[in-house]
Design a binder for these strands. Sequence first.
DNA 1: GCGATCAGAT
DNA 2: CACATCTGATCGC
Length: 435
Amino acid sequence: MASRLISVDRWAAGSQVYFLTHLHSDHADGLSSSWANGPLYCSRLTAKLFPFKFPEFNLSLIRVLPIGSWHSLSLLSPSGSEMHLQVMAIDALHCPGSVMLVFRGEFGCLLYTGDFRLEAACERARRSRNMLLGALEDQVVDIIYLDNTYCNPSYDFPPRQVAANQVVNIILSHPEHDVIIGIDTLGKEDLLYHVARVLKIKIWVWPERLRTMHLLGLYDIFTTNTSLTRVRAVPRYSFSIETLEALNKIHPTIGIMASGLPWLKPGLQMSKTFSGSFLTSRSKRAPGRANCEFRSDRQSGNTGALERLHEYIYSVPYSDHSNFAELKEFVKLVRPNNLKGIVSSSSCCTEPMYLGRHCGIKQPAKQLHMNHTSKGSIEREVAVSTKASFLNDDFVESESKRQKTLKVKSSGFRSSKFRALRRMSRGAKIWEHNS
DNA sequence: GCGATCAGAT
DNA sequence: CACATCTGATCGC
């Protein structure tokens, strides 16, 4: 049906142009060094980081989209005529290089937010909002494709600035401890930078991550020398109770997980908050252990929960996705005719519709995530609602990317032991100069 | 042996 | 009850 002229964060063949909103692997996977399906548009910073993630990639395919200016494209429409459209990238403040995309053309005006967070009090976010409003001028956004990751009123967490200060306070209250902070391959640099600046310390990162920091222009505060600092940012997958227990045999150490848990409004489902989280580990489940003494420092209101999850581990509600209130404000600002979520998961499957009601959008029965089984009919709906068939399938497919299949798992003892050993060996890198 | 893909774990 | 990312198994080459 639809000819799929454009793909966003989707890499199957068949489109004429491709857009990458940011370099997190759940958006970039499918790309590879051998990928050559068409020109790939991304922000300048993403383009700079790109060869680090895909060393063999044919860089001649990459097109830089400058932030804040319209870029014109001519595509061949299914009927064989030339189709003109324009696209603008706007800083999404999700991770370095992340952008949202505004498309306009004979099909109307579409806004694809990608993953984003524009906090109310943030100056850089204010610039993005203004840029967006300037781009829209008097145009109506026909469809907003929204980062609905936390599009549910129960997701209520503070601005990143607040959470960053919580991290600072936790470190300050443990003056004799080493500290590890779990991070991913990209993102949370602002948090680390804030911690380093306020505490006037350097932060250890692993060598690959240091190279990323340098690509981002951060040269001074990060080091791979553990003797220079007591604060280390470690890969999230090596951040575990086992790691902390091992580290504590050598030196008192606390772990801080920035994000990692859903942050529910006080009073909502608190009893199950910790089940199934990253803290679910074999040692935690061992009977008779006193290592699950959750102390809730949750304050009233929504200033954000500071949770001590474990004698060594704190969780801080630091999120690079918008919370519900922010999503609501954003949709009110954009006032789209139609609203669709880009993430499909159990907690937000019907929430775009809910958000639309909150924001006064008159929304026909077209929302995308009624359930996961009616995708075919959804695609037909979208084809109608966009007035033109050229974007449709790929947007829809990008939304179904993160669908999870629930399966019964069987993990063998051998593999778990192997994993533990592997973690230890990675941990050894973490404390190499201490032991 | 290698890359792509998937399941599973964290 | 999330996200992002890693490993290992499997498959096709």
